[in-house]
Simulated scan of single mutants.
Amino acid sequence: MDVTELLAEKRNIEGLNLSGMALTDVLAAEPYRFTNCDLTRADLSEADLAGHVFEKCVLDETDFRGSDLEGARFEGGGGAKTRFGRAELTDATFVNADLSGAEFGNALLTDVNFTGCRMIGARLTGARGTSFFLSRSNLTLADLSGCSFRKHELEGIRFDEANLASCDFTGAVFTDCRLIRARVVDTRFTKADLRGADLGEVDDGQLRALTGAIISSSQAAAILAVRGLTVL
């Protein structure tokens, strides 16, 4: 049975090598569950993938651009430079997925949850929608410029060296987070609770961006110490 026949007959696909294949016009209308499949550089652009499940799949350079991924679930697996540009991702879930270098430009990220994900160097700038949620994820070197985290509860997030320019963290609460050397030009932290964040060494530009934020006495002492002041 060839791949096309298999995909026409079954909806639970396990251990299949689909790397480099054009799949948009091959899949049936009903949701599939892909488990341990290799989708490296597979073309799923402009596909109807609402409700599909991708579990422990290899997604290196997989093309989901312009696809309908509403309610889709990605659990484990993943890969480098997966492309989600222009995709519809409302209510999608990413759990313990590797999204390093993933591209989400102009994707609709409404009520999307990223939990336990490796998102080093991911690009979410330009994404549409204002309600994607992050938990226990590594966004080191990620580009999140212009994204809104207004009143979000951010737990276990690494924003080290991330581009947070023009982000809105108004009223956000940071718990067990890191913001070391993050770019915070025109970033809003009004009433943001940063007491649970490792700020690293705060330079003058970062300090200006923190205007209106809530910090601890130990954080304030560390900021003043590098400027030659001692808090008693």
Rank of each mutant, 00 (worst) to 15 (best):
A142M: 03
T40A: 14
M1G: 10
A50R: 09
R183F: 11
D98K: 05
I120K: 11
A165R: 14
L108M: 08
R123G: 12
C57Q: 04
C147W: 07
G66V: 00
K191A: 14
V58K: 15
T62N: 09
A8Q: 06
G66P: 00
D198G: 04
L69K: 01
G66A: 00
E155F: 15
I214H: 13
F74I: 00
L154S: 00
K151P: 07
R118Q: 14
N12V: 13
C177K: 07
F104I: 11
L89V: 01
F34E: 01
D160I: 05
L232H: 12
V26C: 12
R158H: 01
I214F: 14
A92D: 04
F132A: 00
A213Y: 11
S137F: 05
V112W: 06
F133C: 12
G129R: 01
L229F: 10
G71D: 11
R83D: 12
V95T: 12
E153H: 09
V226R: 10
S137H: 08
N163M: 13
T130D: 10
L6P: 01
G20E: 09
Q206D: 04
G116A: 07
D160F: 05
M21T: 14
L224A: 11
T211E: 15
L164V: 04
D91I: 01
S137T: 07
D91Q: 09
R123A: 07
L89G: 00
N17I: 03
L6R: 08
D91Y: 09
S131W: 05
N36G: 03
